[in-house]
């Protein structure tokens, strides 16, 4: 089974989410032996995975909650805390 790069990209993506059949897996491995582009894609999909893992429990970056929203939320919390 000869796969195109597009088909390989579909299977590499699906392999992130589920198990491929052994036929699919073998066809992908064979393609990766001679296709540098798809081999890079495989590594980059793994990188996207580590990006996702990193932001599961934390929120890196510098974006801040806008002040008007902060003030609105502060008011709401105050009201809620009133007995």
């Amino acid at each position: 089974m000869m796969l195109s790069c597009k088909e390989v990209s579909v299977l590499l993506s699906r392999a992130c989410d589920t198990r491929l059949t052994w036929r699919e897996w073998l066809a992908v491995r064979l393609h990766l032996l001679y296709c540098a582009g798809c081999a890079r894609l495989e590594r980059q999909l793994a990188f996207l995975r580590s990006v996702g893992r990193r932001v599961r429990e934390e929120a890196p970056g510098e974006t801040r909650l806008p002040d008007p929203a902060r003030e609105r939320i502060r008011q709401q919390l105050r009201q809620e805390q009133k007995p």
């Binding site: 932001v55 929120a59 890196p60 974006t63 801040r64 909650l65 929203a69 902060r70």
Partner: peptide, 9 residues
């Protein structure tokens, strides 16, 4: 607040 906002955004 900032971290929750970044997470949600």
């Amino acid at each position: 607040g900032d971290a929750l906002y970044r997470y949600a955004l």
